[in-house]
Design a protein around this nucleic acid. Structure first.
Lengths: 148, 148
DNA sequence: CGGTATCCTATAAGATACTG
DNA sequence: CAGTATCTTATAGGATACCG
């Protein structure tokens, strides 16, 4: 995760994977996307060990996707929390797309454990490939240019 | 990638990561998304070693994202190719979302090496979080339900 | 509660050499 | 061209114990 081992890949996908590409990081980002904020909840809900949870959360903070802060519920003592930064919010399409593919194509024992719906509207939330002009872009209409 | 090591995670995100969650698999899916079809091109363009390229391509075929076939260019001998299946095409939002986050937030030495544009329209291709009713869904409007 | 320290195993991934 | 075989190293990640 820190430095790529092989040939240096000058690609935004590879760069993203170098920062947040491990299973543990992505599971933690999933949890953050679902609203989890506290250390113990991250560990239990991802099934990660505490040392791994601590290490990856620290990396995600370093990488700017999460921010750590103190907070105090009324009448309680001070606790820690991890919240999505704006960069972390920008990561939600990745998590949404992974969830969507899993729902459609992976065999999740016991059926679908998660739903994400649009507030008010009630329709399911998905990741769509579009152009910035707003058109849906099917694969055949995507033109790839390799620069350099 | 084969069997999850820790607590069994009943989640579509985790299930997806168990099938295609390694850096090498995701780089190969990136290449497939960019139109790469031949073994040697996959290896060179991802920077992966040949043994790793062979192993992961075989896994992606097993997982149903790629299909292997013979093909023959006019006047050439028979060659192999790997093509996206419909399940593989459904994976494109993941790759698009990873690329998009990298373009916005990762430091790719030498600038942006890749563009994906909408044919004809010319506008850039991105992954958007929407509901199936067609509304854009900002994070604040996503309602998460954990079932079971 | 929110971690850290230490040690261990499994796997990801590369290097090199070789084959049909 | 499209791989396979073998070996090695680096990293992911868990288990257990402990700390402020």
């Amino acid at each position: 995760m820190d430095a790529p081992t092989g040939v240096r890949e000058h690609c935004p996908v590879a760069a993203t994977l170098d920062l947040v590409g491990s299973r543990s990081s992505l599971l933690l980002m999933r949890e953050a996307a679902l609203g989890t904020r506290r250390f113990a909840d991250f560990a239990v809900r991802t099934g990660l060990s505490e040392p791994m949870t601590a290490r990856r959360l620290a990396e995600l903070v370093d990488a700017g996707l999460l921010a750590r802060a103190d907070y105090r519920e009324p009448g309680q003592r001070v606790r820690q929390e991890y919240r999505l930064t704006s960069s972390g919010v920008d990561f939600l399409p990745v998590i949404t797309a992974l969830r969507q593919w899993g729902d459609a194509h992976a065999d999740v024992p016991g059926g679908r454990p998660l739903r994400v719906d649009h507030a008010g509207c009630g329709a399911e939330v998905v990741a769509e490939v579009r152009c910035t002009a707003g058109h849906a872009v099917p694969p055949a209409e995507a033109v790839v240019t390799r620069l350099r």
